[in-house]
Simulated scan of single mutants.
Amino acid sequence: MLRYIALIISIVLQLVAVVVALRLTKVTKYKISWILISAGFVFMAFRYLIDLFQYMNRPRLEELVVLNDWISVLISIFIASGVIIIPEIFNYMRRAEYARKIAEKNVLNAIIETEERERKRFAKDLHDGLGPLLSTVKMSVSALMKTEKDEKNLEIIKNTDHVINEAIKSIKEISNNLSPHVLTNFGLASAVKNFTDKINETKVVEINVDSTIYKQRFPTNIEVVLYRTICELVNNSLQHGNAKNIRINLTSTDSILDLIYEDNGKGFDVSKVLQENTSGTGLRNMISRIESVNGTYKFESKSKIGFKATFSIHIGRKHDKT
């Protein structure tokens, strides 16, 4: 009776294994190694059915004993062959994972390139479209200022001229922030220095930039990613960290471009922020951008001791400024 129960349990478990194995055949893209292993499971189930039949119908038939032995041989052949060539499944999975990462990187690079292209287009439209219109209005107001004699009207015209000047200045700043011409024309270090100098003028924070790459240029996507990363880090330090001092270090070797960013803000729990859906979005986007250019990153921060970010990007050989 116990043997009968054991055979029933074995048959049920073996049939479950057969079903799972057959379903995984599609997942493994019908690789021959898994088909052989699945066939081994099928014959195992068949052999247990023969054992059950023999148990329920005595005496034992010699023909079924011989058949059972040969099925055991087939099972051994199928499973041994499958195990021997199963590394192809793991190789396939590694290739699929590598292809997925490459595809994700290409998609992200395409998004970044499209975003930068749209930024440049919008900045150009602002500068070349709205800028000249405001300049024309300013010329008209300036001409009116020269002919107006009434003091009240003259004061209104002066105020209008001042507002127009502020509007023209704002458009230039917005256009430059959208697509900094310094980055395009002079490179990463110069663009970062230009950006931080404007912030230093506010006296809200002191930003020190140390760089050895003023005479070097790098692939456009790398310069754009690092420039946007630095801008976002500075913005985070001011808005969330209440930092008063920021240090940015840009250096490169023959094959690596390094960025070290430090502030003396209030700090935060990096792992906790990265797990949050809202506050961690900026850091996760930053990580995705850095990884899209084959970069690595490291964040260090604790409450009340500031924040430090280190980025390293593989660039191949150095690129001299032309």
Rank of each mutant, 00 (worst) to 15 (best):
E62R: 14
P59M: 13
V225K: 01
S135D: 08
V273A: 05
M93A: 14
A39K: 07
S237M: 02
F90A: 15
R317F: 11
V83G: 14
H319Y: 14
R284K: 15
N177A: 06
I230S: 00
T296R: 14
V273Q: 00
T28K: 14
I32Y: 09
W70Y: 14
S33H: 12
E201A: 08
V107Q: 05
Q14R: 12
G131W: 01
R217K: 15
I8E: 04
L36F: 13
E223Q: 13
S175N: 08
I174M: 07
E115D: 12
D197K: 09
R23S: 13
L133I: 14
T114N: 15
G187Y: 00
V141F: 03
I85W: 03
K105S: 05
S170R: 06
S170V: 02
L2Y: 07
I79T: 13
E113F: 03
W70K: 15
Q14T: 14
G267M: 01
V182R: 02
E62G: 07
H314I: 13
D320E: 07
F195Q: 04
E201N: 05
I77S: 13
S303C: 04
N294A: 12
L52T: 05
I174N: 01
Q216P: 00
I111E: 09
N277Y: 06
T229Y: 02
H162L: 11
E300M: 07
F122D: 11
P219W: 03
K152Y: 02
W70V: 15
R289H: 13
T220D: 11
L154W: 05
R47K: 14
T25H: 08
I305M: 09
V42W: 04
Y214W: 06
T281A: 08
G131R: 11
E300T: 03
T147A: 15
Q275F: 02
H314A: 14
M44E: 04
V205T: 02
N57F: 09
I111P: 04
I287W: 00
I171G: 03
F268W: 07
L154N: 06
S237V: 01
I174C: 02
G82H: 03
Y98Q: 15
K101M: 11
I37K: 09
Y98W: 10
Y55K: 15
S76L: 09
N159V: 11
K146F: 03
G295C: 06
Y4S: 14
I213K: 10
L134H: 08
V141W: 01
T28P: 06
R23E: 06
V20A: 08
M1E: 09
T220E: 12
L283Y: 03
I171L: 08
A189H: 06
K308W: 00
N236K: 04
H314K: 15
S72P: 05
C231V: 09
R217V: 13
D125G: 11
S255T: 15
K152Q: 06
L130G: 08
R47E: 09
D161I: 10
E201F: 02
L52F: 04
D258M: 14
T281R: 14
